[in-house]
Write a protein that binds this DNA or RNA. Structure first.
Length: 549
RNA sequence: GCGCCCGUAGCUCAGCGGAUAGAGCAGCUGCCUUCUAAGCAGUCGGUCGCAGGUUCGAGUCCUGCCGGGCGCACCA
């Protein structure tokens, strides 16, 4: 019996009590099943009686007792106890609990997937770094979290498009081009230009590939250098992302919005909606109507559109491509953008509560001896991946709540010891894989999972492991709903620990010349189920699940 | 000044209004002739920043303060 099955059973009990006239209350749409911390609170617990007490107008423990009577009659339920303020503590019989293993093994790589987001089309934008420099550690966080979130949403049946907004227009690009041009001619970088070794490298590469640019007049050289330099950077960005194993479905060029007339269309649409006014030669959007601190310029006095204008056109483009939700992951250094963007979307006549979501992630710093000598400089994605590898880089970024700043200690994440959480989890997977190989060598035939006597899995450690495995679908669904991939990582660490304790306590394979016991096959299936969940969870984070370490 | 985020064990951090607040690391004590010791068991460690409030119940929600991070452009 899975937790979901139990939830259904609890709701049946409530429904029965209502129909039998023992309770007067609306049957709730769902029951929350928790895994209690201590074994003395049963295998599973639900607080449904506490939640129904008020609407039913009766004390929680009384409500609990009514539900308990019916739940006790359920097949597979061996005991139901009313405890504390009104919790129902449920104990399953071992056959019902062991049956979970069969569910997991049968579902295989889809175990943990749900359909809670079926039908939703989500556009998920992340990273979107300007093409004027290499990706740095901060971008690793958005890449890791964004990709994990995409996988999570897909695991809950949403249709997801991973998108990267490539800012190849605007004043930063102009300055980038001017900087490259200056460096190519051995001149100093102009005021406000881009410095750093990489800029000179890009300039050199541009000249090497397009020698004719050296003959251009100063007036026309900037844009040519910019274009060529951006191509260079774009290739670098894609290569860096590939090193991390992050793939995008769409790289969207800002330039296309300018050349396709989408910007003027957007301005006209806003003007028609009556939210536009002109002042000091510029075109403004009256975002204060919808709670913004101040109104925003969308077309400058010199006739060029601001990035707000492009962002709005981009938003509309996504909506017109059929996405119901536009999700944009941003760093905390851009959080001021959120109220503005929401107000602007309202100006378009849309409801941002329904269509727009902007998760904000806090910033990343790097410490540890391997890279700290670069303190003050930006650490790049490539340097980080070279130092700790893609698995650790992704896991390190994905295991913290987006609300927490991360100080990434390179020494910890590059170590091959238990200090390093990603090794702890991967090790559990490798340990199981090894065990299963050994079983094969001993010619132990697991047979069909349906034929295994899973009711044999009745020791305390086995029960702990079964309950942990049963929680996985709920963890996946809530992590997706809360946009919190780190919950997957934390769950995996806990599951790995639970497995190690089981492993330590329960002998699985026969030793020496002993014969297999009746526990051998059921335990092997339990191991296989655990391996599947670890692999599925690591897969959601984009981290490998090695068979050997 | 205004806004967003954070403040939980020595350190790094989990904790979807529920039961006695957890994990890893660090410290101390044990466990490998047999399935990966990259593991396990035990032990030490807390005024959940402070003060009020909401309620059957607050680390979690609200208000105010203190401390830290990040923002408040005709830059992106």
């Amino acid at each position: 019996m899975t937790p979901a099955d139990l939830a259904a059973a609890v709701l049946d009990a409530v429904r029965g009590a209502v129909e039998g006239g023992e309770l007067r209350v609306d049957v709730p749409p769902e029951a929350v099943i928790e895994r209690p911390k201590g074994r003395e609170h049963g295998d599973y617990a639900t607080n449904i009686a506490l939640r129904l007490a008020k609407p039913a107008g009766r004390p929680p423990r009384e409500v609990a007792e009514v539900i308990a009577v019916r739940l006790r009659q359920r097949a597979g339920v061996s005991a139901v106890e009313v405890a504390g303020p009104g919790f129902l503590n449920v104990t399953l019989d071992s056959a019902a609990q062991g049956a979970l293993v069969e569910s997991i093994v049968t579902a295989g790589s889809s175990y943990g997937h749900t359909t809670t987001l079926a039908g939703q089309r989500i556009n998920l934008e992340f990273v979107s770094a300007n093409p004027v420099g290499p990706l740095h550690v901060g971008q690793v966080r958005w890449a890791a979290v964004g990709d994990a979130l995409a996988r999570l949403l897909q695991a809950n049946a949403a249709e997801v498009c991973r998108e990267y907004y490539f800012n190849d227009a605007g004043s930063q690009i102009d300055r980038f081009g001017a900087s490259l041009h200056a460096l190519a001619h051995g001149r100093p970088v102009p005021e406000g230009g881009y410095k750093g070794d990489y800029v000179a490298d890009v300039a050199t590469a541009v000249v090497r590939e397009h020698p004719e640019v050296m003959n251009l007049l100063d007036a026309e050289a900037g844009p040519v250098f910019a274009r060529a330099g951006i191509d260079q950077m774009f290739a670098q960005v894609k290569a860096s992302l590939a090193r991390l194993g992050v793939q995008f479905d769409v790289f969207f060029n800002e330039r296309d919005l300018h050349t396709s007339g989408r910007l003027t269309e957007t301005v006209e649409r806003l003007r028609a909606a009556g939210h536009v006014f002109e002042q000091d030669g510029a075109v403004w959007l009256r975002t204060t109507t919808f709670g913004d601190d101040k109104d925003r310029v969308i077309v400058r006095g010199d006739g060029t559109p601001t990035y707000f204008c492009a962002d709005l056109a981009y938003y509309l483009d996504k909506r017109e491509r059929g996405f119901d939700r536009v999700v944009i992951i941003l760093g905390a250094d851009h959080h001021g953008y959120v109220p503005r963007m929401r107000a602007m979307v309202r100006c378009l006549g849309e409801d941002p509560d329904q269509t727009l979501e902007i998760p904000i992630g806090q910033l990343v710093t790097v410490s540890g001896s391997k890279l700290s000598k670069r303190a003050g400089n930006l650490v790049t994605l490539d340097e980080l991946v070279a130092a700790v590898g893609p698995d650790a880089a992704r896991y390190a970024m994905a295991r913290s709540s987006m609300d927490s700043t991360i100080d990434l200690n390179v020494d910890v994440w590059s170590s091959k010891t238990s200090d390093n959480p990603v090794f702890y989890v991967q090790y559990a997977h490798a340990r199981i894989a090894s065990l299963l190989r050994n079983a094969a060598e001993l010619s132990i035939d697991r047979g069909e999972v349906a034929a295994a006597d899973l009711s044999r899995l009745e020791s305390e450690r086995e029960g702990d492991l079964l309950r942990a495995l049963g929680e996985f679908p709920r963890v996946v669904a809530s992590a997706a709903e809360l946009r919190a991939p780190h919950r997957i990582a934390r769950y995996l660490e806990e599951l790995a620990g639970t497995y190690h304790r089981f492993y330590d306590d329960c002998r699985i394979l026969p030793r020496g010349d002993e014969e297999p016991t009746p526990e051998t096959v059921p335990r092997l299936w339990l191991c296989e189920a655990t391996r599947l969940v670890l692999a599925n969870g690591l897969g959601l984070l984009g981290v490998s699940a090695p068979d050997r370490m």
